[in-house]
Nucleic acid binder design. Structure first.
Lengths: 211, 211
DNA sequence: CATCGATCTGAACGGTGTCAACATAAATCT
DNA sequence: AGATTTATGTTGACACCGTTCAGATCGATG
């Protein structure tokens, strides 16, 4: 008997389980946080037995990678949007930084999964190499803002920018900075103020921070 | 009745178990990585039953916090050393940054535990407030290097520096940067080059990066 | 229609964090 | 000293976890 008409009811063979599992994982992630994200819980949430996922992912890790992949895609999209909306090329970089940190603040659990999967690896995820990836866009933004186009120098600048953004993403969560945030006009003002202290984000022609 | 206080005799059952547990944890951490660090494994390594730790730590988490605490202390000490050894106040900050990242590279598992414990919290660990703490020393180094002594501005600069160092600590592990590292004279050259791109680490009077 | 391969289930194994009940050694109190 | 309280450690159990494997079920292919 079908439970719901719109959603394809669950026959013995679920239509597209791997997709459903990833969605279930994201649902759990958002509702209960990373600590509650067990393979069994995901299977439960997807209405399937604990062993079912193993026909689509060889590992719990592989499922998490799929989840992380979605996260990187989403991040890339939001970075692209922020970059496109910049009123000048000069502060496109800062806009990207703000978008990055904002993403991590709005999807903290997802952001955690994205980086947790990286810490055991020695290589960055593939998603960092796509043209639409955040990494690539930072590179382009740096060049467009008049950065040194020398490959090595560009790579250094990109790494520096990325490090700063990621570091900020992990520190913004602390309450110790609440009053400072408030005095800077909220979270975004805080983020901008920090980025304004970081060399890579300061380009010729960009206004100095006001204080 | 105790035999000799100075002797390594075990006063009662196991001696100072809480200390022994932390040491056992660090041993496991270094030998097998963070993935192998279970409460039971720690108890096993310390030669004690799985439930024994609960008389000293209310949680696995509380044990890990104790381990992390040691890590923060060690980091603070090495930062202090690097700061003291700087040949001028101007690059003391950069020296601190290098010491920070180097620590994270030499104790990757410990570094992971230190930050993992923070990500569920909304407050920074207490160890960041001690006078000897890395955080405090960054603040001092910024002031001594001629940074803006205005409290809010100082806090911003400190956050920026810390974010950059932490971000770098988490990115340096990737092989993608190996060739770049090599062309910069090894890991430390790489770290310095990145830090040179981060504004907070560049102070008036400091040499521009060479390239 | 019969068969095959992909997909899902059920039960199981060893591992984990945690707890309650019990045991023992140390410290404290008469 | 001896008795008692407190701190510490052990045993055994519970629920949950990741993972595997033999078998059930189904969609597609011959």
């Amino acid at each position: 008997m079908r439970e719901t008409a719109s959603a394809a009811a669950k026959p013995y063979h679920h239509g597209d389980l791997s997709r459903a599992l990833v969605m279930a994982a994201r649902r759990i992630l958002e509702a209960e946080g990373p600590g509650a994200l067990s393979l069994r819980a995901v299977a439960r949430e997807a209405g399937v037995s604990p062993a079912a996922p193993y026909h689509h992912f060889k590992d719990k890790n592989e499922l998490l990678e799929a989840v992380a992949h979605e996260g990187w895609m989403q991040l890339g999209a939001e970075v692209a949007k922020a970059r496109a909306e910049a009123d000048s090329q000069h502060n496109a970089l800062t806009n990207i930084g703000v978008a990055y940190v904002t993403f991590s603040r709005q999807n903290p659990a997802l952001y955690r999964v994205m980086y947790d999967g990286m810490r055991d690896r020695t290589e960055m995820p593939l998603h960092a190499k796509d043209a639409e990836s955040g990494w690539n866009q930072v590179e382009c933004a740096i060049v467009e803002a008049g950065g040194d186009p020398d490959p090595a120098e560009l790579q250094l600048a990109t790494i520096a920018a990325w490090c700063a953004a990621h570091g900020l993403a992990e520190m913004t969560t602390f309450k110790e900075f609440d009053s400072l945030k408030e005095s800077l006009g909220g979270e975004e003002g805080f983020i901008r103020a920090i980025l304004d202290h970081i060399g890579v984000f300061i380009r010729p022609g960009r206004d100095k921070p006001v204080h």
